[in-house]
């Protein structure tokens, strides 16, 4: 095949001279982690709120929550990202739009990516939260109310703590997804892991090493997140119930 393997390439100084190629990869890695974690915070908070609203006995609130979920679930992530990045600044009041466009490009890319990933994932989190709440025995809600709890108290003390535990395993997979989906943000020029991989191919002419390294980095993220979430699951397990001993 005549391909010259050269794993040492990662330790060579990069084309811009101020770093090694390994340093480039590490920068991309940090960007992927930072972006995914900050988007995850948004996704969890909004997703929990919207998911709960979908189960409340109020047609208007539940309807708004449903519309929210359908909107973010039925448009491809890439299209949503481009809309956040290219369209929204144009639709904002001029001063605000200009302020966005004049900010640092990396900041623009990061901000659009974070909001986009966060909202996209929040719709999925909301679905999991809703189905967690709906899978609780109906009597639990009645039992809470019968003890004199108000509806919000019943959610807070009775339904949500249990629904939360049921929802952790499916949320783990959404959490993994957010890291994987963050690769889409390379398309607007954000230098996260996948984008750095592409850059490495261009600059080093060692495509195999570059892509294998990036792919392994994603696998490593996956393994670490899964291990941590399993530990977490065991910690919150309820004695005598699913997962508990």
């Amino acid at each position: 095949m005549g391909y010259q393997w050269n794993w040492g390439v990662f330790f060579q100084p990069s084309a811009t001279g101020d770093d090694t190629y390994l340093g480039w990869m590490f920068a991309g890695f940090k960007m992927t982690i930072g972006l995914s974690l900050s988007a995850w915070v948004i996704a969890l908070l909004l997703g929990a709120l919207v998911g709960v609203l979908r189960t409340v006995p109020n047609k208007l609130l539940a309807g708004i929550a449903t519309a929210y979920v359908e909107l973010f679930r039925n448009i491809p992530l890439l299209v949503q990202l481009f809309i956040w990045y290219f369209v929204l600044p144009e639709l904002l009041p001029e001063s605000l739009g200009n302020a966005f466009k004049q900010s640092h490009p990396v900041l623009q890319q990061f901000f659009a990516s974070m909001v986009c990933l966060g909202l996209f994932t929040s719709a999925r989190v909301a679905e999991q939260v809703r189905s967690g709440i709906n899978s609780l025995p109906k009597g639990q809600k009645n039992a809470g109310l019968a003890l004199g709890f108000t509806l919000p108290q019943t959610y807070r003390f009775v339904m949500l703590p249990m629904a939360f535990r049921l929802v952790v395993p499916p949320l783990t997979s959404e959490f993994l997804n957010i890291f994987k989906n963050s690769a889409v943000c390379s398309t607007i020029g954000l230098l996260e892991l996948a984008a750095q991989g592409r850059q490495l191919v261009d600059y080093t002419a060692q495509p195999y090493e570059s892509f294998i390294a990036v792919t392994l980095a994603y696998i490593a993220i996956n393994v670490v997140v899964m291990t941590l979430m399993h530990k977490f699951e065991r910690r919150i397990a309820v004695p005598g119930y699913i997962g508990g001993k």
Partner: peptide
């Protein structure tokens, strides 16, 4: 597990930048 651990974008980049050359040769 391999395919589920890797972003689709990454898989597509493999198939866009690397696999064609490999298959071509």
């Amino acid at each position: 597990n391999l395919f589920r651990a890797v972003p689709l974008v990454m898989v597509l980049l493999w198939f866009f930048l690397i696999v064609p050359e490999f298959v071509g040769q």
